[in-house]
Design a protein around this nucleic acid. Sequence first.
RNA 1: GCCCGGAUGGCGGAAUUGGUAGACGCAAGGGACUUAAAAUCCCUCGUCCGCGAGGAUGUGCCGGUUCGAUCCCGGCUCCGGGCACCA
Length: 824
Amino acid sequence: MQEKYIPQIVEAKWQKHWEAAKSFKVTEDPEKEKYYLLEMFPYPSGRIHMGHVRNYSIGDVVARFKRMRGYNVLHPMGWDAFGMPAENAAIQNNCHPAAWTHENMAYMRGQLKRMGFSYDWDRELATCDVEYYRWEQKIFLQMYQRGLAYKKTSFVNWCPNCATVLANEQVEDGGCWRCDSDVKQKELDQWFFRITNYAEELLDWTNRLPGWPERVLTMQRNWIGKSFGCEITFPLEGGEEGITVFTTRQDTVYGATFMSLAPEHPLACRITTSGQREAVTAFVEKIARTDRVCRTAEDLEKEGVWTGAFCTNPLTGCRMPVYLANFVLMEYGTGAVMAVPAHDQRDFEFARKYEIPVLVVIQPDGENLDPATMTAAYTEVGTMVNSERFNGMKSDVAKEALADHLAGEGVGKKTVNFRLRDWGISRQRYWGNPIPIIYCDICGVVPVPDQDLPVTLPRDVAFTGEGGSPLARLDAFVTVPCPLCGASSRRETDTMDTFVQSSWYFLRYCCPDFTGGALDKERAEYWMSVDQYIGGIEHAVLHLLYARFFTKVLRELGYVKVDEPFINLLTQGMVIKDGAKMSKSKGNVVDPSGLVERYGADTARLFSLFAAPPEKDLEWSDQGVEGSYRFLNRVWKLVFETLPFIKESSALQPEKLTGEGKALRRVVHKTIRKVTDDLEERFHFNTAIAAIMEMVNGLSAFEPKGDPKNGAVLREALTSLVILLAPFVPHAAEELWEGLGEVGTLSLVSWPSYDPDAAADEELTIVVQVNGKLRDRITVPVAATEEELRSAALATERVRPLVDGKSIRKVIVVPGKLVNIVVG
RNA sequence: GCCCGGAUGGCGGAAUUGGUAGACGCAAGGGACUUAAAAUCCCUCGUCCGCGAGGAUGUGCCGGUUCGAUCCCGGCUCCGGGCACCA
């Protein structure tokens, strides 16, 4: 080995070695226990950033550690390669999204390889490759056959000037991001996945994923939003039909004084009286002009319009005017709300504005609400009033009783409702997976037949950003004969949401070269589920929920057997600098390439692992990077300078060690224990590295290096040190391993186990407290009995004056820890 | 508003089950080496009092449980995140 540590040379050497030897290639081996480690795959945006470095460094430590622990480790990497930025780049720079994406992938692949991550590159996949997305089309059609994919109309953001659909993030202040025109709501026919079918199961399993962070599970539970209540039907005056509402507050039904419908409610138009028609039409149109973000803003003023119609409260017979209200959402519940102004804040504000009567049906304890003087709705539990037979009951008890009563009267029933909505997957974009559907005027919606799959994305399209999806303007793509009747028909030109691709990529990694279908069942069964998934908290809901849903769908379709895709989840914190997330606009971006050029990949990895535990935000520090680099230099120097003393060493005879040699060996084995625990149980890489640093400090200070009887123990210390470093700084560790004269690739050697006897202390420091205050420390043999501890503690010089002349009330002895003397 | 987190030296953080608070690193100060600087090595480093031995105090604030609380309980303050007209 060289005297001087030159990371650039060392790293290039070992990266070449691993690549040539295919050190990290894995195959399914039933004899070995598998471990599937996965980091969220990147979007090929151009170059990797510090967040990637951190995410993938964390993952690589785990992968390398588990590999050394003897697991058959699947550690793949690929590209979330479809998406809008590629299309934006095409519009702006006149280059094809495919070319842009492939260039980025090539560059970023080089960057990842330069970091020395131990991926099985033979399993690399890109979701924009037809060999990937063709299977997704097949899955889509299977879902369609089962009714899990279906079409319905839905609203999208629409720029009338560009004549194109906008994603939510392309709407800025209610205007188009490119031309600033006012964004309108446009109703389009779109494809949906029936995720709501799985709401109950998705919710249920949140209680069976102990390896997930609690806050992610909480977010998912909130997102699914299960609530218990009743459906109640209010008959419409002068008609057969009624309005059905969902409510969780059936205890307030006697206080319902009007009805609110979503402006989009199908009944809205039909029940409007001629006198109110003009006002209602104006209101509905106004709502259609508001974009979705404003529509659901908190501070939006409650507004509505009376339809001229009335319905009847089925319990009181009370006549209730039917309004349309801007805050009622068609997507939730039934799109209709029974309005109880006395006990719902929104209804209260609405009633005050339109001078609708307020009727109190729940009184708080020790108070007497008067509708005339109330300034806010009372929403807590109280005593029922004005509610006939339920008067005097506690409102929370009445909830149950009323549910039964409504059912008995035939006007309502108990029900549950979910906040979760079906997943709209249609995107009016080019750079995505084409939805394999054909529309025929005669046969209707026709799935693309199996033998015609895949529907490949045509290359020769023009990108202007105007006039909608480029696919829709490509006649050669759109016009096809109907597979059933042969008549000229049209292809679906929408592509799938990119979240669809990321919902099953982890399954395809199990068998990326499989040509017989989406998944090779046998291989998928061997590897699934993912044992450890690592990625950013920003995916807590959407990606992680969709992937769970998709796994369940694929289970139903017979592709996999598992219920859940990810057993353990680690959500790593952000990389921040000067207290803020790194961003171009803040000018606080640290480019990984510059860092790697200057210090090498090992230093970059070491710092991002040492500076903070993985789930916390990491504050970037240039001086901290220097420190990590200094540490590696110290390790290098230590090994290099100790080398001459271990050359001739004989076999290690632990029982013959004494004094400093024995103490050194104790440090070594304690460190192995500590690092193993931190990696295995806790993922506390920062404390593992701290322990290794302490061991290096100990080794550097070890004086009798030249004593031949210490040669063997020094050899053990150095080889252990290098192995412990291997998951964190693999290149330097490989080189040092070779320098020590060891054979084989370090990345593939076995992780050491510690010797409990060697790690055991002979003496312990015991703390002596008087009345809970630390007064002295005593050193005792490990085997000291409680009685010995007690008398030793009482006898020390510092303790005696504090105890003399006072009565000892109690002595608490905690073996191995402390003695506390309580005097009075 | 609701639901989660979190608060420890100048800074990042450690303390794994209620038992030595501040490991490890960074920064800072002092010293060695050098013509000099860089690099490297050694020492000091929570605060206050004391020449010193040592003492007092200290984990956001107030209180409680306990022989003993960064850790458990109750009440607050501040910071971060998620959800937010969800009927």
